[in-house]
Amino acid sequence: MDQGILRKGAIIISTITLFFIIVPILHIFIKLSAKSLIATILDKTVWTSIFVSIGCSICATLLGCVMGIPFAYFLSKNRFRGRAILESVINLPVAIPHVAVGIALLSLFNDRTVVGSFFNLFHISFVDTVYGITIAMLFVSISFVISSALVGFDSIEQEIEMVSRTLGASSSYTFFHITFPLAFPSILRGAVLAFARSISEVGAILIIAYYPKTAPVLMYERFEEYGLSAARPVSALVIFLCVLIFFLLLYLSRHYARH
């Protein structure tokens, strides 16, 4: 009896949750007129912003992997005082409001600071450039890569690596042929989430690099200047592409994990 009530309750709550996620997304498409959608598809500005978003998200995800995977490996294989604090620090970007992230990045990386001047030597400026967008995306998404990679590395039994070493494999051979392939499904999941987080970022980007406009910034701008009906077709197109890319990446990561 009790179990039956629990089950029914869980089904009802699950349905409400599912509707809560799906309905707002579907609603945008329902309210969309074919004319405005075609106009958006033919709008060059929209496609430029989408390409900027996708390009910068890919760069941020790759950079996140390059920085995050070794860090996660180091954390997983070493026990030291302060490790728990480090693990909390990893998740800080998720907890900080993203406008504050933008302000923090702008104050550190603007051209007048030591860091900004250093990058200027290589003709890299972060204010209103793709570098600024990428660094903002990297900051808000790197936690996903590190956390997932950490879970992946932690799940590998130490004995497996020990066996590999005694069978004649060096520590680097063991890493690339045993540890990394075994942790790869987790890393890939983290990278997919990081990509999704990057492409959806707006708060930090608005502060550090309003230009070139990313798709979310363009949506925000159209909404601010022309209202809901002008923002809707861009949003619909971006949502459609994001969902497509997200499910494709998710499918690939699951496909790899299964095999």
């Binding site: 039994e157 004995e159 497996i160 020990m162 066996v163 590999s164 070493r165 069978l167 494999a169």
Partner: peptide
């Protein structure tokens, strides 16, 4: 280093590479 000793270790869980 372990890989240079020519001593093979086999743990209880066998350590087969999944």
């Amino acid at each position: 280093a372990p890989e240079k000793r020519n001593i093979v270790y086999l743990p209880q869980n066998l350590g087969l590479f999944p």
